[in-house]
Amino acid sequence: MTNDKMNITKNEWPLWEVFIRSKAGLDHKHAGSLHAADEQMAIENARDVYTRRMEGVSIWVVESKYIHASDPGESASLYDPANDKIYRHPTFYELPDEVKYM
């Protein structure tokens, strides 16, 4: 990193990831990210940026640097084994036609 580049970004507000529960009963879902000086401001900014159209009832924020991500190069070993565990999926089970809504 050049000196110049460091000067430009030195005092940038940290980046936060925003997760929003769109209505009661649902999971929090990643909505996007934003900058804020602290966690309180991050929540408020998230409210102002990502719920302008009443998209949320609950907000989580986490500073982006604390997110640990899996390595896409290893995705075969992480996720492919689940491919043959089809018994985890509801359509694996045959139900008589009379049973609806399960």
């Binding site: 934003l34 900058h35 900014n45 102002d48 940026v49 302008r52």
Partner: peptide, 11 residues
Amino acid sequence: PILEQDIALTN
């Protein structure tokens, strides 16, 4: 002064 606050103040 920053995009996030521009949006907040407009709200």
